[in-house]
Design a protein around this nucleic acid. Sequence first.
DNA 1: CACCGACACCTTAGGTCTGAGAGACCGTTC
DNA 2: GAACGGTCTCTCAGACCTAAGGTGTCGGTG
Lengths: 178, 178
Amino acid sequence: MSEQVVSTGDAMDVILDQWARERPDLDCSPMGVIGRVSQLQREVFLAQRATFARHGLDAPSFDVLAALRRAGAPYQLTPTALMRTALVTSGAITQRLDRLEEKGLITRGRSDADGRAVVVTLTDAGRTALDAALPDHLDTEHGMLAGLSAEEREQLAGLLRRWLITLGRVPGGTPDPS
Amino acid sequence: MSEQVVSTGDAMDVILDQWARERPDLDCSPMGVIGRVSQLQREVFLAQRATFARHGLDAPSFDVLAALRRAGAPYQLTPTALMRTALVTSGAITQRLDRLEEKGLITRGRSDADGRAVVVTLTDAGRTALDAALPDHLDTEHGMLAGLSAEEREQLAGLLRRWLITLGRVPGGTPDPS
DNA sequence: CACCGACACCTTAGGTCTGAGAGACCGTTC
DNA sequence: GAACGGTCTCTCAGACCTAAGGTGTCGGTG
């Protein structure tokens, strides 16, 4: 008995029940938030990947193109800036740029102001590709949230923002000098 | 002006502002939820990885050990069952089990009932390792949520569960027959 | 009892990432 | 103006994953 899956629970409820039975001494309630975030991120990732594929892109490429597009004309950033917004290592950015350069979506040039730096520029083809994919991407995201009411979505965004802020992940995340 | 970072925003607020300036014709509000989920999942992943490393484990290994431990005595599951709870491909499970078997944390044996199936069993060493890591893991998760009130955490867990359910990701999530 | 689709696990090739480190350049200091 | 620490980008090895395919087993059918 009690093997029947209740229609009002999700996969994490099952896991929490299992832990409650095996380790009733532990408070596993944090998993109710964190485990679900992991699962949702996975669902989001898969849906986004399918969308990008329809436009001949993948998620890492879209990430870079979107950062350049967001930056506004003349659509230029350095690899270091891209590294910071994408939250990946410099090696990952180098490889992403290699792929995008080969496809003609970006160009690399040396900076006039700083001999160490590279300036990455979105090409017309790159901007066209991104602007074509962006509405589809937003449709996908909107679709994933369609099951929640506008109020719930707003509430969720607010809670997630508060959580991020308490983790100390703020935009200018460098400790400011005294 | 308006370059000054406001202390009440997070990284996603900056991105939303950029899109509002560059593409005021698009409704980017879904990013406010989905982008934050991605960022939070990344923070969670990094914190968990550091915790697991203190116990000589990594996230994929912990995932498998925890699934076996949750299952209860005699701590046995098939690779297919592990594949379903871990949401990875069979090849990934094979490799995870190879690593765990080499470390002596699990054993593999053929099933008596089904000649195709393998039975994965948690060893005493495996159970000991998991039970040692689990409280530390929960401390890490609790610490990540410490900035939110109990009410906020509960609200968040509820919203995320509702979201997962609307996506159709329920425990017995097999595609329904026509 | 031989057959055949379905299933369980493993194998292999290919892809992206991390982490460590090299090479070049900047700005300051002595 | 030479030296020095710090910064920027790239390179390379190693880790983990996916996707596709192979082998062996199961269970029902004629």
